[in-house]
Simulated assay, not measured.
Amino acid sequence: MILSASEYSEFQKLLHTKTGILLGDNKQYLVSSRLSAYLKENSLESFGDLLKVLARPGSNVLLQQVIDRMTTNETLWFRDGFPFSYLMSHIMPELKSKGQSRANIWCAACSSGQEPYSISIALEEAYSGAFRHKIPAQVDILATDISSRILKQAQRAEYQPLEITRGLSPERQKRFFEQSSTGSFLLKPELKKRVKYMTLNLMQLPYRSINRYDVIYCRNVLIYFSAELKIQVIKGMADCLKPGGYFFLGASESMPSSIPGFEMVRCNPGLVYRKK
C-alpha cells in the first residue's frame, strides 16, 4: 500500500512522540511493509485513514498494535559476551562482598527475552558450580518492553530452532531447554522464574513504578532515539540505579558527555558505566 510523503511525515511525528523512535526520511518502505497487511485486516483504505483513527480519543489499543508491528525485535543470546561475563566475574562478587544477599537487575527493551534469560542462564551456571558462594543468593530480573506482543512471546520462553542457535552453544541448548513435540525449544521453569515482565514505554518519564537497581541493561535501543531523548531516558534510568550501580549500553553506544555522575569501567573487551 502506497504511503504519501505527507502521510509518512505525520507518521514519523506520531511514532516519535509516542515511542521516541526516530524514523529516517527514507524509511517509507519500512512503514509500508510492516503496516500494509494490518490496514487490510482492519478495513482501512489508506495510511491517511489509519492516522485519522489514531488521532481519535480512545485509540490506545490500536496505537499499541501499530507500535507492536513497528518496533524492531532483533536480538540473540549472550549478545557481545562481555555484559554477561563481566556481570558474573566482577559485579555479582562485588555486591556479595558488600554484604548483599539479593540483587536487582533491570533489562529495558528486552524484546523476546534473550537478554534476561541469558542472565538467568549465567546465574544458573554460577549457582551450580564453585562460584556459587561469590554471588548474592537471590537475583531478581525485571524485563520491560514497549511491545505487549513481544512481551507475551518472551513470557512463553519458547523459541524456534533458528532462534535457539543464535548465540547458544549446543551444550547450553541441551542443559537449559526442553524440546517440544513440535520441534520448538522451551526454557526450563527454574530459569524463567527469576524474570518478571512489564510493559513500559521509555518515553513515560519518570519511571515511578520502577525500583532501585544494582544493574541496568539498556542495549541497542537508544540508537533509534534522538540525541535529546536519549539523554532524557538515561537520566531517568540513572535515577533508578543505586549509587555504585552499573549501566550497560550497546557495544556501539556510549554515554553522552553531558550526563554527569558516571565513570567508565573497561571490561576488556567492552565498557560499562558505574554510577558514582
Rank of each mutant, 00 (worst) to 15 (best):
K174C: 02
R172E: 04
A122Q: 13
E171D: 11
V195R: 05
Y207K: 03
L123H: 01
I146A: 09
Y127N: 09
I121D: 02
A126W: 07
R172W: 09
S148V: 05
R149H: 09
I135Q: 03
Q179A: 06
L186Q: 15
E115W: 02
V215Q: 01
S169I: 10
V215K: 02
A157C: 12
K174G: 03
L202S: 05
H133E: 13
R132D: 05
I150L: 01
C110W: 00
L186I: 14
A143E: 05
K192S: 06
R194E: 10
T182C: 08
I164E: 06
V215E: 00
R156C: 11
M198K: 15
Q160L: 11
K174S: 12
P116M: 05
A109N: 08
T199Q: 15
Q114E: 10
F131Y: 11
L202R: 01
Q114P: 02
A143C: 09
I216Y: 01
A108K: 07
R208C: 03
R166F: 04
I135T: 08
I121P: 02
D140Q: 15
T182Y: 06
E115H: 00
Y117W: 06
R156V: 07
F177I: 03
E178R: 14
A126S: 14
E190K: 10
R172C: 02
Q138E: 15
T199N: 11
E171S: 13
L187N: 05
R149E: 11
H133I: 10
H133K: 13
G113E: 00
I210P: 03
C110G: 02
S112N: 11
S180I: 04
A154N: 10
K196I: 05
Q160M: 11
S148E: 12
A157N: 07
E178V: 09
R149T: 09
G129R: 08
R175F: 00
F185A: 07
A130M: 07
T199K: 14
D145K: 08
D214M: 02
K193T: 14
L123C: 07
Q138Y: 12
R156G: 11
L191N: 09
E158F: 10
G129H: 08
R175Q: 12
S111W: 02
D145Y: 06
F176C: 07
Q155F: 02
E125L: 14
L162A: 13
E171T: 13
L142M: 13
T199W: 00
E124F: 00
R172L: 10
R175E: 11
L123Q: 02
Q160D: 11
S181A: 15
T165C: 10
S147G: 03
Q114C: 03
I150M: 02
H133A: 13
D140G: 11
R132W: 00
E178M: 10
A109M: 08
L123F: 00
Y207W: 06
C110D: 00
L200T: 04
I150P: 08
L200D: 01
S111M: 04
S111Y: 01
Q173S: 09
A122E: 15
N211G: 07
I119C: 07
K152Q: 14
T144P: 13
Q138F: 13
K192L: 06
S118I: 03
E163K: 06
G113I: 00
S147E: 01
I121G: 01
I216K: 04
Y117D: 05
S181D: 14
S111A: 15
